[in-house]
Design a protein around this nucleic acid. Sequence first.
RNA 1: GCGGGCGUGGCGAAACUCGAAAACGCGAUGCCCUUAAAAGGCAUUGUCCGCAAGGACUUGCAGGUUCAAAUCCUGCCGCCCGCACCA
Length: 827
Amino acid sequence: MSSDRYPFAEIEAKWQARWEESRQFRATEDPGRPKFYCLEMFPYPSGRIHMGHVRVYAIGDLLARYKWMRGFNVLHPMGWDAFGLPAENAAIEHGVHPAIWTYENIAYMRAQLRKMGISYDWDRELTTCDPAYYKWEQLVFIKMLERGLAYRRRSTVNWCPSCQTVLANEQVEAGRCWRCDSEVTRRDIDGWFFKITEYAEELLAWCDRLPGWPERVMTMQRNWIGKSEGAEFDLPVVGRPELKIRVFTTRPDTAFGMTYAVLAPEHPLVDALVTDRKERAAIQQFRAEVARQSEVERTAEDRPKRGVRLGAKVVNPFNGAEIPLFIADYILMTYGTGAIMAVPGEDERDWEFAQQHGLPVIPTVKRPAGWTGGAYAGEGVKINSGFLDGLTTAEAKRKAIDWLVERGLGTAKVNYRLRDWGISRQRYWGAPIPVVYCEKDGMVPEKEEHLPVVLPQDVQLSGKGGSPLAEVASFVNTMCPKCGGKARRETDTMDTFVESSWYFLRYCSPHYEQGMFERAAAEYWMPVDQYIGGIEHAVLHLLYARFYTKVLRDLGLTKVDEPFRALLSQGMVIKDGAKMSKSKGNVVDPDDLIRTFGADTARLFSLFAAPPEKDLDWNDHGVEGASRFLNRVWRFVIANLDTLKVGGVGSTPTTPAGVAFRRTIHETIKRVTDDIEGDFHFNTAISAIMELVNALHAFESASLDGVGSGERAALLREAVETMLLLLGPFAPHVTEELWQQLGHPTSLFKQPWPVADQAALTRKEVTVVLQVDGKVRGRLTIEVDAAEDRVQRLALADDKVRPWLRGRAVERVVVVPNRLVNVVTRS
RNA sequence: GCGGGCGUGGCGAAACUCGAAAACGCGAUGCCCUUAAAAGGCAUUGUCCGCAAGGACUUGCAGGUUCAAAUCCUGCCGCCCGCACCA
């Protein structure tokens, strides 16, 4: 089966060694050259690479090598996102220390990546579980603490019972843990937060200033940040002058339609509002029911809204009306003020609740003609609204807010759905949070000179819950950095998304010891020009990294506002209609693939089968096709080596066949370049190269008679060399080998990218399509830019066209220069 | 419910600043090479009618705009993704 295959194993090993020995892809700052920072999301060292990795790294390497050839100074680093739960779980299951498990996996995966022949600058490899790495985020943590950007508080958090740790909001997907899919529960717990909400407005604003990002991702981030503008004001409690309930609304214009108000069950004022024992019992029961519900139950679709009426009443400040007050489960303590004014006339949720509880509805917006529904959330003219009557929704919003402000009752208010980033993890395998708790001084940050706070190695991992570090006496028991007295270390570790929030900066100067990164190096390389990774991080890593970069900027460490200039979100690798997974039994192992077909084939197919942003449907026959193509290239070059070596450089063919062939060569250059530069259409770029190879075969056999041998050899040489240069970034080993066999002493990847010769591209003749009433009836070969009236005359006289005009009058003739003629008839 | 995306041969796909639908690859069929197979080469391959020449039809469905629509517009149908009681 493999009898005539080119020796890919030998070739790939040879060039991987050469590139490494010659340090060809090592990057150094060079202000004289334009830089290109090409970065793929670094992997978690789970054990072995999978096809998803092959795909991203093939894309990244293609761009990196292409940019090298375009003369850029390319930074293309690789490293390991090495902290994380799987290491700890492996330790619990198999008794291997997380560090050993992690470093063994890294060693294996590094070898796998090397076998793929990716052009990484391995000198810059970094591993986030290295104290020399996480030291710097501990330092930044302390600075964030000083600025109030990191803080500790008790709150209700998302708890994953399987991972035994807290999850940030971004890490909960439809009520389930993003990593293990367990149902998330709620827990009241002390924990550390990063104040990402302080950057909500800036993160949102920059969503409009990153044209290199996919719209899809930006939309997801905008939705996640969830800005809404409105007003906040107080509802006085009847007969209790000391009590006011603050509410947030985006529709202050509808305040006259307020017929009741609602508090979240957890609202702190509830206790103060309750007076008699019976009411207290009912409320406690309701609160307990709500608390028992899981996140999944509470957000289930079509859930009826439940609530309890309180004895207390509040006053609508707009019209003085006394209205009933409820607690209800559809109001969340975590959003706005945890209390609302309810306007059933213009809010569907309030409408539903009002129907159930027999509450009155006052419409405040004139309904459109024929409106039959309940709540009307659309815009319109105000009615039943006192001083707002007759205004539009927008005008009334403004006027209502002005009215509140004038009377000191409320203010305009912007709310965000984004919550602060909970970074405490009650697990072992992460970066320690560098603070201690002193009996005398309370919480005290570790001194800078004591950093890093190193994660201890000797730890018992039971998986039973509770921070494993709390069991390590030598770690926990320490001295207060302030008073020198007895103190206990913080035993939570940081969310591993903190490490991945700045690794791209560390790559700029990975061995720098005086700080997080060397300022000059970061200024030269940053921002990342092209970032490549999966869509699953649209609001996780990508939002955190944007936030953290802004924090570092505000700490004066860097000037960059945004870490990633352009983002390419690649699709998943699918086989037999499903994502590859062990349970589905549809996994393709990269090791097998490389052993059987070679890295070049694996990469070429990954790039050819689909455009990068789409899911890639893995097909074993397709892989064979990619392999067949590379073999075809190999055989052609080897078989014609003698001819190719004698071919002169630069050809100006004189025969029509030669001119046409040379045009094909240069059209291919243009197509491939446009496809890479434009929208990353690597699949069509490869198609174009395949067409060139097909043309090469055809020309080689057809040109034996007719084309002079000098012209023929020169053209073949130009075609083959161009083809190898264009194919290089897609299949680097085989092209590099053939380049050398052609007698070139220097690397293919040190050659300039070919430029299409305009002269070769220009045509003398074009084919013009002849249509009658929009249907193709014939073709006409004619010189370029022929006069319209002549084209028209020839079209009308054409043998294929004339029969279709019989018995019909020509109404008009549309001539599109160099493309088509459409004869429109009237019957 | 809100937001985004998609729907083209047997399959992956291409063309989407309106201008030859299906490039390239896979698969399939036939032939050549071979003792034979593998590998390779050449050819055919959207559907239907036809011996052929040729013709008709065809981009989820139904309309519309246009000389001309896969491409623009309207309304449906189906699929995927994100958010979702966010006041």
